[in-house]
Simulated assay, not measured.
Amino acid sequence: MNNYNTPAYSSARPIEIELIRSMAHKPLTTKQNNQLDELLRSPADSRDAFIMKPAADWLQTPNDSQDATATLFGDFWYRGELCIMFADTNVGKSILAVQIGDSLSRGEPIPGFGAAGKPEKVLYFDFELSAAQFRKRYSSDIHGNYNFGPGFTRLVFNPDADGARKFGSYADYLNNAIENVLITSGARILIIDNITCLRSGTEAAASAVNLMSKLQAIKHRYGLSILVLAHTPKRNPAKPISRNDLQGSKMLINFADSAFAIGESQTSAGMRYLKQIKQRSGSQVYGYDNVCLCRMIKPYNFLHFEFTTHDTETAHLLHYTEQHRKATEDRITQLHSQGHTLRAIAAEMGISYVTVFRLVKRLERELFSQSVIARNEAIST
């Protein structure tokens, strides 16, 4: 074989790569230039690792996706996003999630959060409530059952399912199961309540991260909008909510397009507030200086959030007054005298271990000083 006649490239390379390589040897003809431009502008093969288009082409909006930046829940959740909503236990995450899903399935926006649209299919994966608990929230003895729209579907774990053993990990099994339901239902809006319940064993954090990664993948594959609910660990109610309050925040929030939190007002009983934590599609409307206030109500047979007004987050944080300081010290002293460990006290009080340790040591020193003074007084008399 004549090596000089052998091409310096493999014929298996894509034609656009061959044309670009040819440019190093001689200028392309007009026909070849036109051919290269067309190839670079054409859709990429689904097997390719990258989708390559001129930057200007990325700014063109297809006619069938002009609502791609439409809001699903005000500025908190946009269409096409993987969004995280997080809060402490019993603050109302599931209540708000069902309210959002119901509004989207009806095409009727929650007052103050978006415009009316067409009814959509919504899949609500409920890993929190039993059937009895769900029924209690959305029915009453007087008004009967709430009339959910036909597009709102609730899914729960099947206790008899045994397909997990066929997969390498539980996260892979869940991802496959979610994708199967997605394909058969044709839904494009998913609500998962909540990711904490999907964690298992010593690989809990890794499972959650793996699931979030897979959710991002199927979001892009099927053009989904996904709302994931998550818990916060015990937090200090005197401090503003931040991304650090989300369990596994350093890993999980990186996979989210947006995130918002529900806070519990410390100054008005029963009041909640919504605060944006991360946003990409829109701007920060509900930050620390403009949180959205709301209350949970059930006037008939539908437990939901009623949105009232806006305020600063500071106005609804726990203010550390002298009275509160004394009450905190008394409670810590009581728990310590009952034999609770310092870490258990810190968890119950929602304050750091170091704070409890220092306070206990200071109280012990004060108690010792008082006993010495009392003993000296007794001796002197």
Results as ranks from 00 to 15, higher is better:
R106E: 12
E120R: 13
V98K: 00
P109Y: 00
E120P: 02
S105H: 08
K121L: 13
F127A: 10
L96C: 11
P119W: 02
G101V: 04
I100P: 03
I110Y: 08
L129F: 11
A131T: 15
S103V: 09
Y124S: 03
P119E: 01
I110Q: 03
E108N: 13
G107M: 09
V122K: 02
L129W: 11
G114D: 06
V122G: 01
G114N: 09
G114A: 10
S103T: 11
L96H: 04
F113S: 09
G114K: 03
G112M: 00
E128H: 10
Y124L: 06
F125S: 02
V98T: 15
L96G: 00
R106K: 08
F113T: 10
I110A: 08
R106D: 06
A132T: 13
A131I: 13
L104S: 04
P111D: 12
Y124G: 01
F113W: 12
F125K: 06
E128I: 09
D102S: 15
I110N: 06
D126H: 00
A97Y: 02
K118G: 12
L123W: 00
I100W: 04
F127V: 11
I100E: 00
F113E: 04
F113Y: 15
A132D: 10
Q99E: 14
G114P: 10
L104I: 15
S105P: 07
D126T: 02
Y124P: 02
P109G: 11
E108L: 14
I100L: 02
Q99H: 09
L123Y: 05
A116C: 08
G107A: 00
D102R: 04
S105G: 13
A115N: 15
A97V: 07
F125W: 06
F125V: 10
E120M: 13
A132W: 10
E128M: 07
A115F: 14
F125D: 00
F127K: 05
V122M: 02
G114W: 04
L123K: 00
A97I: 04
L96F: 08
P109T: 07
E108H: 15
K121S: 13
P109Q: 10
S105R: 03
P109V: 11
R106L: 12
S130K: 13
D126I: 01
D102V: 08
A116Y: 08
G112C: 11
K121Y: 01
V122S: 05
K118V: 15
L104M: 12
F125E: 01
K118D: 12
L104C: 01
E120W: 06
D102A: 14
Y124M: 11
A132F: 12
L123I: 09
A97G: 07
I100D: 01
I100C: 04
L96P: 05
F113D: 06
F113P: 05
L96M: 12
V98D: 02
L123T: 00
K121V: 07
S103Q: 06
A115Q: 14
